[in-house]
Amino acid sequence: MKLITEIRYLLKKEMVLEWRSKYALNGILLYVVSTVFVCYLSFKTTPPLVWNALFWIIMLFAAINAITKSFVQESKGRLLYYYQIASPQAIIIAKIIYNMLLMILMSTIALFFYSIVFQNEVGDKLLYFAAVILGAISFSSVFTMISAIASKANNNGTLMAILSFPVIIPVIILIIKLSKNAMDGLDRSVSLDEIGVLTAINLIVITVSLLLFPYLWRD
């Protein structure tokens, strides 16, 4: 029970801080919108395959930019404060949940804007949206732990990219396949495999993060 109250408290704290500065929200939103616009200006129209891949590449980089900040840009003082008030498990869960919410919001807005600017037929709109949500969740669960690891190592962004790409590629392969199925309007039972494996990856990654984060935190 103590864990849940701690998580709640940290989550609220995180949101209040974000709401005060609106740094991540505005910054990432602007990043996504301008990337989409640049892509629109350079592509004009795209075949469906490119449309899908492009969207996920934009989302991938937006996610890296957004989530790197979750540990790397924390000040020493605030980390010390967290250390005193909460257990490491509570901190990592709160961070993962917060990043998930942030990414879900971000990718919903991005999808909305993207599909307005780029005209494209999507066969199964609901499944595509589900794929986007699932993608946002997977990105945040993987990147949160990597960001924690990278923040301990000289805080540079290059390391974050190097460490996260090999881990995220299987996720991205699955998501692109899932969303392609949705675009082609295939029967939903076809996509069950991908959804199952994605959920499994998420569960594994979150469990491993929970087990490992305490070691990373104690320093």
Binding site: M145, I146, I149, P166, V167, P170, V197, A200, I201, I204, V205, V208, S209, L212
Partner: peptide, 8 residues
């Protein structure tokens, strides 16, 4: 952290 992902 990377090992389970490699297994998948």
């Amino acid at each position: 952290f990377a090992f389970p992902v490699m297994v998948v």
